[in-house]
Amino acid sequence: GVTLFVALYDYEARTEDDLSFHKGEKFQILNSSEGDWWEARSLTTGETGYIPSNYVAPVDS
């Protein structure tokens, strides 16, 4: 299955590639091989962008 991640904090995008999000928003991670910045798709907005990996945690299934 796909592991979903949930935002622990609000984040405001600093570049066009970043994804702004709110605490509690859920994400599907598309690429986590880039280190501290993961490519993710928000399940709330459907938008794709980079998120700071230390702002999210796995959702307990």
Rank of each mutant, 00 (worst) to 15 (best):
G1A: 10
G1W: 07
V2E: 15
V2Q: 03
V2N: 15
T3K: 13
T3C: 09
T3Q: 04
L4F: 15
L4C: 10
F5Y: 15
F5L: 04
F5M: 09
V6L: 06
V6Q: 10
V6P: 00
A7S: 07
L8D: 11
L8V: 06
L8S: 11
Y9T: 15
D10G: 07
Y11G: 02
E12W: 04
E12H: 15
E12I: 07
E12G: 09
E12D: 07
A13M: 04
A13C: 03
A13L: 02
A13G: 05
R14C: 05
E16A: 09
E16H: 14
E16Q: 14
D17K: 15
D18F: 12
L19G: 00
L19P: 01
L19F: 14
S20R: 04
S20M: 03
S20G: 06
F21P: 00
F21Y: 01
F21T: 03
F21K: 00
H22M: 07
H22Y: 13
H22P: 10
H22E: 12
K23F: 03
G24C: 03
E25A: 05
E25M: 08
F27A: 00
F27Y: 01
Q28H: 14
Q28D: 12
Q28I: 08
I29K: 10
I29Y: 03
I29V: 14
I29T: 06
L30C: 05
N31E: 08
S32K: 10
E34C: 07
E34T: 07
E34W: 04
G35L: 08
G35A: 10
D36C: 05
D36H: 08
D36L: 06
W37A: 09
W38F: 14
W38P: 03
E39G: 05
E39D: 09
E39C: 07
E39W: 06
A40Q: 00
R41T: 14
R41W: 04
L43F: 09
T44N: 06
T44E: 12
T44D: 15
T45D: 03
T45G: 06
G46D: 09
G46V: 02
G46C: 06
G46P: 01
E47P: 00
E47T: 10
E47D: 08
T48Q: 09
Y50C: 10
P52R: 12
S53N: 08
N54H: 07
Y55M: 06
V56D: 01
P58A: 10
P58R: 07
V59C: 11
D60E: 14
S61D: 02
S61L: 06
S61A: 15
S61M: 14
